[in-house]
C-alpha cells in the first residue's frame, strides 16, 4: 500500500469510526432509557397497589 493510499484509508476510517462510535452511544442511551422505563413502570405499579391486583367480579342484585 502506498503512502497516498494509507492517507486515503485513514480519512475514510476516521469518519467510519466516528459514525460507529455515535451509533454505539445511541445504543447505550436506548438501553438506559429501557432500564429507566422499566424502573418507572415498577414505581407506578407499586404506588397504586389497588390497580396492581386483579379485579374481582362481584355479583350485583
Amino acid at each position: 500500500m502506498s503512502a497516498g493510499e494509507k492517507y486515503v484509508a485513514a480519512a475514510y476510517v476516521v469518519v467510519l469510526v466516528a459514525v460507529l462510535a455515535y451509533v454505539a452511544i445511541i445504543a447505550a442511551k436506548l438501553a438506559r432509557f429501557e432500564r429507566e422505563l422499566a424502573e418507572l413502570t415498577e414505581l407506578a405499579r407499586s404506588s397504586r397497589p389497588d390497580e396492581a391486583q386483579p379485579r374481582r367480579t362481584l355479583s350485583v342484585g
Binding site: 492517507y7 486515503v8 480519512a11 466516528a18 455515535y22
Partner: peptide, 17 residues
Amino acid sequence: TIFGLLTLVTGSIWARA
C-alpha cells in the same frame, strides 16, 4: 461540531498527503 471535528481531521490528513 462533530462534523466540524471530522472536517478538521480529514482535512489534516489530506494536507499531509
